[in-house]
Design a protein around this nucleic acid. Structure first.
Length: 659
DNA sequence: GTAGGGTTAG
């Protein structure tokens, strides 16, 4: 081995080319070289060696070089930058920090590298600490420093300090001239929820680019300022800045929130044109947009085009289907997802513990009448927040488990979490569905004094609760308190009048209702869905002919009615129009959609329990009929109506005739 | 030699 001045370089480059990929060889040769060489005096000598050590993430090698530098009298200040850089690149933060602390004079790049490392590894506190040290050491931050450190400020909620540094950026002229600094500022203000500030920064940046504008659109979208998001997108196009997949992903979510299909479709077109329609993120947003706009078929088409859907895509699809009332399809898709998830990808990634996926599952189980399954998912969640708690409370509420729901609400309060409008609705619904009227009233009174603005939905729930409990006057007073009562409220009150046969009040309410005809509120036709052999069949009240098996269905239905009558079923005609002949009333009753659906399921004779989904509330007559039918056919019938679940078993129902 | 943005839940 030659030992002249460039010996190290020559040998190392030879070693690199021959043994580059064989770590063992490089390392043993390296050791020999270090022992033999005393010529580590110039950057040229140790740079290639250091690079090789970084490639191999080999800390002992770096330390050896450091020792050699020291031996050769190489100044620590000059070697320090290289060593810190090497340490960071190897992920050896402890070592990098050690060297950093020993340095008396540090190059700005060294400061920046260390801060960037902490930011990249989400160690915001340490990033800010280094930044503060930098300031107190009288080192002026540059565009690299500032564009990284703002992220740490927003992460730690350090608004004041952030503002001071923003001021520094302004003084240095970097806010205007450097788009990276500008983007970081926009992103930071967005994360503080200050979209107005973010917009002001954006306006000042001289050369705006996609990332900058996208950061603002993201902010608007996340803050629910959806119209602003769409507007910012439009002006972006006007300025000739091309959107990318991130931009599309965000603006589409806003279109979905606004139910703005026309802009949504326009943007979809742009995506296809620019070739960003194949990125998973924007595809997922597109799917979400169509689902939120209620275009289930379009969204299914999008979903089919997605080659590798991830857990977010699945969550979006399943929750979107649930949103559109297509629970059965959601379950079918969920089954597909599980089947596609080779080796239990869900548990592998701990997705069942993820609050987002978890809440979706809880909601799904709740809406399928399985609150115990919902609870077991809830109990495995890593992190409980308002939304997962709301979802679980709502699941209990709609299945009539009031006590359990209220217990969770209590836990939420103990955790110091701020209840929102969904919480309030879930708690009231829990009281309502479990007959906890006094508790419900108490809660309502305290909610009225609270922060949450109560809407017609909350009032409707209370009116229903009071009305069914026979406290009609209180219910009436409540309706009259509402500034803009809608049809739902009057209908709720009316149905309470019907239950308690209060004709006087009912007449008055009907008058009020007819006044509202100008509101273009139409009653949706009564429909039921039943799942037989993994297929969903739809039935509409009074529609006896559109189903291909209508003949068999009617035959089965007649037989079921006959058998039910033998076991004591008597028609209850209180829920049909009064101005009908008796025989017509009876016919109309027998054509209710859930009766048709049940008859179909019985005729097909598929095993297990019969699951019915219904868009309106189940009527008194059907309720008593289904109770008896569950005994006649000796099978469980589960019916989810617009309000809640009914589990019919052996002649009785889980709601204990209170619904 | 160091720097920026996104998708999902009631």
């Amino acid at each position: 081995m030659r030992r002249d001045h460039y010996g190290g370089l020559i040998v190392v480059s030879r070693i690199s080319s021959f043994f580059g990929s064989k770590a063992g060889n490089f390392r043993s040769q390296f050791r020999l070289l270090c022992i033999a060489s005393n010529s580590f005096t110039t950057t040229h000598t140790f740079s290639p060696l250091l690079r090789q050590c970084i490639d191999e993430r080999w800390l002992p090698g770096i330390k050896t070089i450091q020792a050699q530098m020291l031996k050769s009298g190489f100044p620590v200040q000059l070697s320090g930058s290289k060593l810190v850089d090497a340490g960071l690149k190897c992920g050896e933060i402890g070592y990098a920090r050690e060297v950093f602390d020993e340095m008396t004079e540090r190059h700005i790049v060294t400061w920046n590298s260390l801060i960037a490392y902490f930011i990249k590894h989400r160690r915001s506190k340490e990033a800010v600490e280094v930044y503060r040290l930098m300031i107190t050491s009288n080192v002026l931050p540059d565009e690299y420093t500032l564009s990284s450190v703002f992220k740490a400020f927003s992460d730690l909620g350090l608004e004041e300090e952030a503002q001071r540094s923003h001021g520094l950026a302004v003084i240095l002229g970097l806010e205007v001239s450097n788009v990276f600094v500008g983007s970081a500022l926009v992103d930071m203000y967005v994360k503080f929820g200050k979209t107005r500030e973010a917009k002001l920064v954006l306006d000042r940046v001289e050369e705006k680019d996609v990332v900058l504008i996208t950061a603002l659109i993201v902010g608007y979208s996340q803050e629910g300022e959806d119209a602003e998001a769409v507007e910012a997108f439009r002006s972006m196009l006007g300025e000739g800045v091309q959107p990318n997949e991130y931009t599309y992903a965000s603006v589409l979510i806003s279109c979905g929130n606004l139910k703005d299909v026309s802009n949504g479709k326009l943007i979809h077109g742009l995506m296809i044109k620019s070739g960003f329609d194949s990125a998973l993120g924007s595809q997922t947003s597109l799917l979400t947009m169509y689902l939120r706009c209620g275009l289930v078929d379009d969204s299914l088409w999008i979903f089919k085009c997605i080659e590798y859907p991830n857990e977010v895509t699945w969550t979006s699809l399943i929750s979107g289907l649930v949103l559109n009332g297509r629970e059965e399809m959601a379950l079918t898709e969920f089954r597909k997802m599980m089947r596609d998830s080779i080796h239990g990808i869900v548990t592998k990634y701990g997705l069942d513990r993820d609050k987002y996926a978890g809440s979706g599952l809880i909601d799904l189980y709740g809406k399928c009448g399985c609150s115990d399954m919902a609870r077991s998912v809830f109990d495995t969640l890593n992190e409980v927040d308002v939304i997962s708690l709301n979802t679980m409370i709502y699941s209990y509420a709609q299945n009539g488990y009031g006590r359990e729901a209220l217990e969770l609400f209590e836990r939420m309060m103990k955790l110091g979490l701020q209840a929102n409008d969904v919480t309030v609705l879930s708690v009231l619904l829990a009281c309502n569905n479990s007959g906890l009227v006094d508790e419900g009233c108490e809660f309502f009174e305290s909610f009225r004094k609270g922060k949450v603005v109560l809407t017609n939905d909350h009032y409707a729930c209370m009116v229903d609760m009071l009305g069914r409990a026979g406290r009609l006057d209180e219910a009436d007073r409540l309706v009259n308190e509402v500034v803009n009562p809608d049809l739902v409220l009057w209908r709720t009150l009316l149905s309470a009048c019907k239950i308690h046969r209060n004709v006087e009040m009912a007449e008055r309410v009907i008058e009020m209702k007819s006044d509202m005809r100008g509101m273009k509120l139409k009653k949706s036709p009564a429909m039921s869905w039943v799942d037989v052999d993994r297929e969903t069949h739809t039935f509409m009240a009074g529609d006896l002919f559109s189903h291909p098996n209508s003949e068999q269905i009617l035959e089965t239905l007649e037989e079921l009615i006959k058998k039910a009558k033998e076991m004591g079923y008597v028609e209850d005609k209180s829920c049909v129009f009064q101005d009908m002949e008796e025989s017509a009333k009876e016919r109309s009753l027998h054509q209710h959609s859930e009766k048709l659906a049940i008859a179909f399921a019985v005729w097909r004779n598929a095993g297990g329990s019969i699951r019915i989904l219904k868009n309106l509330r189940v009527c008194v007559d059907c309720h008593s009929w289904i109770k008896i039918v569950s005994r006649v056919i000796n099978r469980e019938i589960i019916c989810r109506d617009s309000k809640r679940f009914h589990h019919f078993r052996d002649g009785s129902c889980s709601c204990r005739d209170y619904w």
